[in-house]
C-alpha cells in the first residue's frame, strides 16, 4: 500500500514559553491509499490540531509531514493553498457553504481555484452533485436546503476536483440521526470507490463506522486499531 499521509515525530506547540500548550506531542502516523480512518478524541485532545495539520491548514512546530511523498511541513501560504486544492477535500461540521452562492456555484469553487474552464467546471460539478443525489437542487442556495442536503452539497464540493483525501471534521455533528445515517452512507461509498477518508470525531458511534480507529488524547496517539466491527453496509 502506498503511503499517502506520513507524519513523523510532529509537535505543535502554542504559546512557546512558560504557558506553552503542546497540542501535538511527538505524533507519528501513517495513512495509506484507500483507507477509512476515524480519529477520535475528546475536545482539547489535539484532534483538531491534527486535522489542521493533515489538511495543510497549519504547519508543525517540529517534525515532518509528507503528503503524497512530498514534504509539506514548511510551505508558504500559497503553496499550502495549492496543496489543499489538489490533495484534500474538506467536509466540515458546519457545512461551510457560501450562503450567497447556489449549490452548483459552491461545488465549482475549488475548480475555479484550480483554474478549470467554465464548461468543464459545470460538467464536473454536475457529476459531483449527481453522485450525492442533488441534481435537482443545483440552483438552490444553502438557506433553501435542509442540513442533510447542505452537507451533501459540501461533500459534492469536496469530491468535485477528485482529491485523493477526504477530510471530514465531525461531518454529522449538526445533523439529526436520519440525515447522519445518510451522510455516513455516502462517506462509506466514497471510500469503497477508492478514496482515502479520514473522519475526525468525538463520537464513538461515528468512529465505529470506520475501518481503522485512531484514538488521540493529550496530543498523543493512544491507540491505533483495525475496527473488528467494521461492516460494509
Amino acid at each position: 500500500m502506498k503511503k499517502l499521509v506520513e507524519i513523523k515525530d510532529v509537535c505543535k506547540i502554542y504559546n512557546p514559553g512558560e504557558n506553552e500548550v503542546r497540542a501535538l506531542n511527538h505524533v507519528n502516523l501513517t495513512i495509506g491509499e484507500n483507507e477509512f480512518v476515524a480519529i477520535i478524541g475528546q475536545s482539547g485532545s489535539g484532534k483538531s490540531t491534527l486535522m489542521n495539520m493533515i489538511g495543510c491548514l497549519d504547519i508543525p512546530t517540529s517534525g515532518k509531514y509528507y503528503l503524497h511523498g512530498k514534504d509539506v511541513s514548511h510551505m508558504s501560504d500559497d503553496e499550502q493553498s495549492d496543496i489543499r486544492n489538489e490533495e484534500i477535500g474538506f467536509i466540515f461540521q458546519g457545512f461551510n457553504l457560501i450562503q450567497s452562492l447556489t449549490a452548483m456555484e459552491n461545488v465549482e469553487l475549488p475548480l475555479i481555484y484550480r483554474g478549470i474552464g467554465k464548461r468543464e467546471r459545470d460538467r464536473l460539478a454536475e457529476v459531483a452533485l449527481n453522485s450525492v443525489g442533488l441534481e435537482k437542487r443545483k440552483n438552490h442556495r444553502p438557506n433553501e436546503m435542509s442540513g442533510g442536503q447542505q452537507q451533501r452539497v459540501a461533500i459534492a464540493r469536496a469530491i468535485a476536483q477528485a482529491p485523493p483525501i477526504l477530510l471530514a471534521d465531525e461531518p454529522t455533528g449538526n445533523l439529526d440521526s436520519s440525515s447522519s445515517k445518510e451522510i455516513i452512507k455516502i462517506i462509506k461509498r466514497l471510500y469503497r470507490e477508492g478514496r482515502t477518508v479520514i473522519v475526525i470525531t468525538h463520537d464513538s458511534g461515528i468512529a465505529k463506522q470506520a475501518k481503522r480507529i485512531i484514538t488521540i488524547s493529550d496530543g498523543e496517539i493512544q491507540s491505533d486499531i483495525i475496527n473488528p466491527d467494521y461492516k460494509e453496509d
Binding site: 493553498s81 495549492d82 489543499r84 461551510n96 469553487l109 475549488p110
Partner: peptide, 16 residues
C-alpha cells in the same frame, strides 16, 4: 471572514 476561510481551505491563494 468565514467565507474567506472557506475559500482559502478550498485552495484560494492570497492573490485570489
Amino acid at each position: 471572514t468565514r467565507e474567506i476561510g472557506i475559500r482559502k481551505s478550498l485552495g484560494a491563494r492570497t492573490s485570489s
